[in-house]
Design a binder for these strands. Sequence first.
DNA 1: ATGAAAGCGCTAACAA
DNA 2: TTGTTAGCGCTTTCAT
Lengths: 334, 334
Amino acid sequence: MEKVTSLQVAERAGVSQSAVSRVFTPGASASAKTVEKVRKAATELGYRPNMMARAMITGKSRIIGLVVAYLDNQFYPLALQLLSNALQAKGYHILVFTAANTRGDADEVMQQLLDYQVDGIITASVGMTNDLTQRCAAAGIPVVMFNRGQAGDDISSVTSANKLGGRHVAEFLLSCGHRRLAHISGWSGSSTGQDRQSGFCAVLAEHGQDVPVIDGMFDRETAAAAARKMMESATPPDAIFVGNDHMAFAVLDTLRHDLGLRVPDDVAIVGYDDVPLAAWPAYNLTTMRQPVNRMVDATVNMLLTRIEDPATAPRRLEIESPLIQRGTTKGPKT
Amino acid sequence: MEKVTSLQVAERAGVSQSAVSRVFTPGASASAKTVEKVRKAATELGYRPNMMARAMITGKSRIIGLVVAYLDNQFYPLALQLLSNALQAKGYHILVFTAANTRGDADEVMQQLLDYQVDGIITASVGMTNDLTQRCAAAGIPVVMFNRGQAGDDISSVTSANKLGGRHVAEFLLSCGHRRLAHISGWSGSSTGQDRQSGFCAVLAEHGQDVPVIDGMFDRETAAAAARKMMESATPPDAIFVGNDHMAFAVLDTLRHDLGLRVPDDVAIVGYDDVPLAAWPAYNLTTMRQPVNRMVDATVNMLLTRIEDPATAPRRLEIESPLIQRGTTKGPKT
DNA sequence: ATGAAAGCGCTAACAA
DNA sequence: TTGTTAGCGCTTTCAT
C-alpha cells in the first residue's frame, strides 16, 4: 500500500505518463484501448491520482472551507452533516474552520483559508460585520453565507424568509388573541436576528403596538435572563417570540422550572428553526420552520455553480417556510 | 490580492528563492539579516507559503481526516468543535468525511482519505467492524478512534471507562433500592455499547440477577420502542439504564408522554454521556459523564505524537469519570 | 549561511 | 489520439 505514481502505472500499461493522466482527467481524450490498459494497470497497482499535485496545477483543491462559530445550536450540526453529504457526492470535501466572531480571529481564518487554496467558502453562524467574507470574495473565492445575509452587497447568501417569518409569527400570535407581545431577539449583529425582529415589530407597529425587545444573543443564559426580566416586569407579556429554538428552549426551561409558569396558558412561546428537538415532547415547541434540506441544496448549488463559472453573479436567496404549530401556543381564536 | 510566490519575495528581498523558503521553514537556518529582509518583503507582498506545494514535497498536509457517521447525538458536534479548536491551535485542520456504517462506504471513504494525503485520522461514531481503520493504519497513517475501542489490536483509541461506567450505574441503581433493572443498550456493533452493557450486566450477574436487554442502536425510535416494550411486559422494570443520553431522552419522552409514567417514581432512568441537554431542566437526566474535554485533549495529543514520531506505539486510553446524579433517579437508600 | 539545481506528482500546451 | 516537454510553488540536497 505504498505510494503509487502515474509513472509506474504508465510503465506497467506500456503507455506514456500523460496518457495515464488523461485517463483520470474527466474532460480528456483517450482511446478505448488506452483507457482499458491504464485502468487495468491502475487497479492492479492500487493507483489513485494525488490530489495535492493535481490541485497545485489546476488551482482547484476540491476543498470547501466551512467557517463556523459554534455548534451548540442543533441547527448547525445538522446543516454541517447535510452539507458534507451533498458536497461529498459532488466530489468535494469540507475543511472546518472554527472562528470566534471577532475581528482578529477572522483575519487569521481568512489567511488559513487562502493557504489551503479552498475552491469555495461557506460561512455559517458568522456575523455580518465580518469583512472576512468581503475579503475572500475580493480574493476571487466564491463565498456563500449560510443562514446569514448581508445588507445590499455582492455576496451570495441563503436564508429563510426571516422578515416574512417574523411577520407570520406576529400575525399568528395576534390571531390567537394575545395582546401583550414581547420579543427576545437573535443577536442583533446578525441579519437573521435583525430581520426576524423587524418583521415581527413591523406588524405590531401597524397595530399600534410597541414591543419590548431584549437581545438574546443566540445564547441560552442571555435568553433565560431576558425571559426572567420580562416576566417580572410590571406588565408581563402573554406571548414571547424568541429569535431561535436554541434560545426558546432556555426560555421554556426558565418559565416552567424557575418561575413556575405554565406554557401556553400563562405565556405562549414561539421559536424559530424547527430543529429536531423542537418536535420532541419535552419541548413540543411552536416554531417557524427553516427548511434545512432546501437551504443546504441551494447553498451547494450556488457555490458549485460559481466555482465552475466564476462569472456567475452572486445571488441572495430567501426560502419561505411555514409556521409549525405545537404545544407552546394555543390555536388561533376562530 | 493575487498569488504571491516565494520567488517574487526573493527578488524583492534581494536573496535567493531558497532563502525565502528557509525563513518560512521552522527548522531551517538563516541569518538574522536575511530573516528580516525576507519577512519585510513577505509582509509587503502579502506572501504566505502555499500549503499544497509544501504538502507535496514534505508529504505532510497538516490536514486531519475526521470520519463521522452521524451528528444527531449532541456529543459529536461538541467533540467536533473542540477537536477543531485544539487542532487549529496546533496548525492542523479537519477535513470532514461522512460515512455510513457500511462496508462499501468505508472503502470509498478510505480511498478519499488517502487521496487527500491526510496526516492522521480521527474516527468518531464509527463501528468497530470497520476495517477502514485497519487499512489506514496499514497504509501508515496514524489513526485514533474517538469514543470507540476495538478488541485487542494495534489502533489507538480514546474512550471513557465504559465497562467501569456500566458497573457504576448498576451499583448505583442497586443502592437506590431498585431490584428490577433493565438495559436499553448502545449499538451492539460498537465497543462503547458492548462495554457499557457488559459492565452493567456483570454486576447484576454477581447479584444473581438476569437483566433484560434490548439493543437501542443509538437511535431514538429504536430506543423508544424498546422502552415501550419493556414497560408493557408482565414484570416491568423499576429502573432502566440507557446506553447513551441521546436515547435516554427518547425513553424519557416515551415514558412521560406516551405511557404517562412518572420518572423517577415509576421508573428511574440513567443515561450516558452527560451532554449539555442532560443538564437542562426539561430532562434533568442522571447520567455517566464522559469528559469530552479530556477525551479531546488526549485524542489530539495521541494523534500528533504519532504523526511527529510514527514509531510511537498505539495506545488505548480509558478515562474514568463520575456519575452525575440528577432528577431521573432517587438518591441511594442510606 | 547561502545559492544553484533537482525534483515532489501531476496537468497542459505543444508537436507529431 | 498520443508522447514530449515544461512547469505548478515549494523543500531539500549539494556545493560554495
